[in-house]
Amino acid sequence: MSYLKRILLLFLLLAFQIANAQKLYFSIGGGPSFGMAKEPYSNFYDIDVVNTSTELETANLISFGKGFNSRFRLAYRLTENLDIAIEASYLQGGKNSYSQSRLVDNNNEFRLSERRVDVFGNMWSISPNLVFSPFNTRISPYIRIGPSLNFGRTYEEVEYKYLTTTISTEEFTGPVSWGFLADLGVKYLADENWEIFAEIRFHSFSFEPTESQITQYEIDGVDQLASLNTYKRKTVYKDKISEEQGTFGFVGIERPFQELSISQPFSSVQFLIGISYNL
């Protein structure tokens, strides 16, 4: 039998089993998310002052995937042991923080400059996935696997104290990025219609912003956003930038600054509990 015929036969078998075991259900759940596969971001690391001539630098690898995750899922029982699901989830990002303290020589008088940076991302994920659930018992394990399409925004909040206090927020936007997720879960059939489940999710993708814009800029509590020209307020990120007007990145004060593209890692391990209801 040719492979094509076998695949067709497999498809027909699944279709037959769908007809015999139709079941639609929805699930909701939520839980904390922790960053994994952490990587350095930008040039950020922590700096502490040891003395006037020495600083202590500390590595700070991060993932934007940390935070709290909420999920809604609509699933269809293809067979007794295989479901297909479409899921929407939302990550309310937790902050990754950097702090950099330095002594600055100001006319032979050392003064402390302090810079604190918080980065985080709020991200929607849409995932079509398959659920393998081989046991029809009251308590049964399952594995969910599927790709994910992810879209949202990330933020960089900076507070800088030296002579004055400057506060700014930069918002990063970009196209949909794709990733992959897998759940290892266990479900408990509470009654005919209700199920309770707990799962561990591994989810990984990188967000590649194409634009950022400063949306808040205050000096000593006074809004100074209007004082920033486009060059200082906006940045566009490109895979390839050409030299224009002699200097890379700068193409005029009324045009956004150009920078080579960046990636923000979003890998995470998530713990989730939830309930399902058979429709």
Binding site: K240, I241, S242, E243, E244, L260, S263
Partner: peptide, 8 residues
Amino acid sequence: LPFKKQNK
């Protein structure tokens, strides 16, 4: 023009 190209 001279260019810079990101290599992710």
